[in-house]
């Protein structure tokens, strides 16, 4: 949550070679926690560029980062303001509702 100290939640997901971090996050939303907030739109094509997060300390697209069998640390982008969970404010300022009024 914005303003509060970050915390990690541990989720175990089934591993299938070739799967992506985004696949895992979508699996968690369906099977464990439908309230988990993530941002994506094109699913797998790396066209919308909306799924950018921090994976093991590095900026990455969730849709093109392959899942590994080890633990992976997923965090919201550190340099953007946090909205919720893994979602940060990435919309161009002149396309946000707040600046509109």
């Amino acid at each position: 949550m914005p303003g509060s100290a970050g915390r990690f939640e541990l989720h175990e997901v089934p591993f299938e070679p070739g799967q992506t971090v985004l696949d895992a996050l979508r699996w968690i939303r369906i099977h464990h926690d439908p309230s988990l907030a993530i941002r994506f739109s094109c699913i797998n094509a790396n066209a919308c560029k909306e799924c950018m997060i921090n994976v093991d300390g590095k900026t990455a697209y969730a849709c093109t980062t392959r899942l590994t069998e080890d633990e992976m640390a997923l965090e919201p982008l550190p340099n953007k303001s946090l909205i919720r969970d893994l979602v940060t404010e990435i919309a161009p300022p002149d396309e946000r509702l707040a600046t509109d009024r």
Partner: peptide, 11 residues
């Protein structure tokens, strides 16, 4: 979604 990024066109 974001303007001009989330529909089918971009894909």
């Amino acid at each position: 979604s974001l303007i001009g990024r989330g529909g089918a066109t971009v894909m």
